[in-house]
């Protein structure tokens, strides 16, 4: 069931969007090309930060620092039976979007996307956001000085999302 929903989601979405466009009589193809151009721009925009952050993560990995960190936290990760590789992702996710993509890249490269760590990293990445960046952008835009309980509530959501990604992968995949 779960597999079916996941497999059908993408084609259904593509089909739905295109048919809705035809139904509303807009030029579907022109809109598509126009949007695709903006995709080009936004991808180019992340090249520079990604070079910086993937270099950082790869260096950490090669120096052995990531493994040291993993063995340091292994009492906790072993206790909950989660792969130690995903913990750096959980820590960096709320702070940096490019940084977390860099870690996911590292996990996929070292463990593979279909390993337990790879699956958890995928779900974690897909279900959480760059919390602090979002808070800064939105409150910054309207000159709010005190965001009150926003960070606490948002981090609660992040923690739940992360714990749930471990649970969901174990139960569903």
């Amino acid at each position: 069931m779960i597999q079916t929903v996941s497999v059908f989601a993408v084609p259904f979405m593509i089909c739905g969007i295109v048919f809705w466009g035809l139904f509303r009589r807009i030029n579907v193809y022109e809109s598509f090309v126009e949007g695709a151009k903006s995709g080009l721009e936004s991808t180019f925009r992340i090249v520079a930060p990604l070079v910086g952050l993937i270099v950082g993560i790869y260096m950490l990995r090669a120096s052995g620092a990531l493994d040291m960190f993993a063995s340091l936290i292994s009492p906790i990760t072993d206790f909950f039976d989660i792969p130690a590789d995903v913990l750096p992702l959980a820590l960096l996710r709320p702070v940096s979007g490019s940084g977390s993509i860099a870690i996911v890249n590292d996990i996929f490269k070292n463990c593979g996307p279909d390993s337990l760590a790879g699956k958890i990293a995928s779900v974690m990445m897909g279900s959480t956001e760059t919390t602090f960046y979002t808070i800064a952008v939105y409150f910054g835009a309207v000159g709010i000085k005190s965001a009150r309980h926003t960070a606490k509530a948002a981090l609660t959501a992040d923690v739940v999302g992360m714990i749930m990604s471990i649970v969901a992968v174990r139960l569903m995949l």
Partner: peptide
């Protein structure tokens, strides 16, 4: 690649 979609929905 897309098998993560449903778990992602549940988690989000």
């Amino acid at each position: 690649p897309s098998e993560i979609i449903f778990p992602v929905w549940v988690c989000s």
